[in-house]
């Protein structure tokens, strides 16, 4: 791995992993705390429509995909606000419709040569220096937004009605969070692809939440975890010549199941001891 670090594409991959971990930790925590996992899945898959649009029109891929995904997230936010009871169905439809649009637009694109798989499963080894700057900029924007709205986000996820009585802009946050998810998802797609992005958003906060007493702690622990998963996954994929995105997710999922398994064993043992006493 240390030898590999002399290779520029590996340096870029490591930096991309670290930059995406910042977004993962911040936004994944908010997603898990606000129970927006399904919505985030919808946003991630709808993003494929943006990829198709970019290729079809010849516009730069990342900005176009972000703009398209932001629009999709705004639509989903509006639906969850106006028709709460139907929200899951509509998100499911947008989820599939976005992907279908992407596939069709790619079919229609002349001389289409983009590797479809790289968007589905990630292409961290092809990250360019421009991509890295772009990711760093998005990270900075996310950090500022989370810092400004930290208490408001926390209040809304705990008790939106009470938050509204204290003057929190509940509706604004209802749109803002999915928009932040959209930006993060597009960034993380570079690493692990849109099919696997949900795992990297949700596994670290889920595990962090079991001990943390504040949202801040969940965010920091999630950033660290996702950095570890990214670096370990990259190393394994390099050593054993595996698909990097899938390997990163495999590491995260492995930790997830090991933790749950260990906890189960531990509590069973503890209750047995307790029963004997």
């Amino acid at each position: 791995m240390l030898d590999a670090l002399h290779l520029q594409f590996m340096q870029h991959a490591v930096l991309a992993g670290l930059l995406a971990s910042v977004a993962c930790g911040l936004i994944g925590s908010l997603v898990v705390v606000n129970r927006l996992v399904f919505l985030s899945g919808g946003i991630a898959h709808a993003a494929y429509g943006g990829v198709g649009l970019a290729v079809f029109t010849g516009l730069p891929v990342m900005p176009t995909t972000i703009a398209f995904t932001l629009a999709a997230s705004g639509l989903m936010s509006a639906v969850t606000l106006k028709a709460r009871a139907r929200a899951d169905t509509v998100i499911g439809v947008l989820w599939a419709a976005g992907m279908a649009l992407g596939v069709i637009l790619l079919d229609l694109s002349p001389g289409y040569a983009v590797d479809l798989m790289s968007f589905l499963f990630g292409s961290i080894l092809t990250v360019s220096a421009t991509d890295l700057w772009f990711m760093a900029g998005l990270d900075a924007a996310l950090v500022v937004l989370v810092a400004v709205y930290y208490r408001d986000f926390l209040a809304v996820s705990f008790d939106p009605e009470f938050a509204r009585t204290r003057g929190v802009a509940v509706t604004l946050l209802h749109y803002l969070l999915p928009a932040m998810v959209a930006v993060s998802v597009v960034m993380i797609i570079r690493l692990v692809g849109l099919i696997l992005v949900i795992a990297l958003l949700t596994i670290p906060p889920f595990l962090a939440e079991r001990r943390a007493r504040s949202l801040k702690a969940v965010m920091l622990a999630s950033m660290l975890q996702s950095a570890v998963y990214c670096l370990a996954g990259l190393w394994l994929s390099f050593e054993f010549d595996l698909t990097s995105g899938a390997t990163i997710i495999a590491v995260a999922a492995g930790v997830f199941f090991l933790t749950l398994g260990a906890e189960r064993l531990f509590t069973r043992g503890a209750s047995r001891t307790g029963g004997g006493a």
């Binding site: 705390v33 208490r151 408001d152 926390l154 209040a155 705990f158 008790d159 009470f162 938050a163 204290r166 003057g167 929190v168 939440e209 943390a212 007493r213 504040s214 949202l215 702690a217 969940v218």
Partner: peptide, 14 residues
């Protein structure tokens, strides 16, 4: 849910 009783109470001062 990652919030202490004290932090929940502080919501009342927002």
């Amino acid at each position: 849910f990652p919030m202490t009783v004290l932090d929940a109470t502080l919501m009342g001062l927002m």
